[in-house]
């Protein structure tokens, strides 16, 4: 998958959509530089994790045109369209594990950034 640029872009869009900016003081996942994360993921993650992310990407890419009723690619979706897509997917049993996996990957990527860790800790006290 990692050699297919279009799938790679859709995978990144899916993961980034899991965590839009939590607050004005916390960045969204899409604003972080995830190149190092994806490099590590593609080079060293267990095969079943990489395969799971590919399955999630393909599944969401197939679901998006159906649920949004227009031909589209994941990296072209607006935030509100992601919300609709996640809402539809969350009601489909087959998507349970894929959403969970994507969420875990998104959280690992987000908190890999030390600045984000500090900011989230400070958010409680501010």
């Amino acid at each position: 998958m990692t050699r297919i640029p279009s799938l790679r872009a859709q995978r990144a869009a899916l993961v980034e959509a899991c965590l839009p900016a939590p607050s004005s003081r916390l960045p969204g996942l899409s604003t972080l530089d995830l190149s190092g994360f994806w490099q590590r993921f593609d080079d060293a993650a267990p095969a079943h994790l990489r395969a799971g992310m590919m399955a999630a990407t393909v599944a969401f890419a197939a679901l998006a045109p159906v649920s949004l009723r227009r031909a589209t690619r994941l990296e072209q979706l607006a935030p509100e369209e992601w919300e609709r897509l996640f809402h539809v997917a969350s009601r489909l049993p087959l998507f349970d594990d894929l959403i969970m996996l994507t969420k875990v990957v998104a959280c690992l990527a987000y908190f890999d950034d030390d600045d984000v860790q500090d900011a989230v800790r400070e958010e409680v006290t501010s």
Partner: peptide, 21 residues
């Protein structure tokens, strides 16, 4: 924090609200 956050409900905006708190 990453593992705790992944245990929060929802995905997208709902997950972000959880992360903010």
């Amino acid at each position: 924090l990453a593992v705790l956050a992944s245990r929060l409900p929802g995905v997208g905006a709902e997950l972000s609200r959880g992360v903010a708190e």
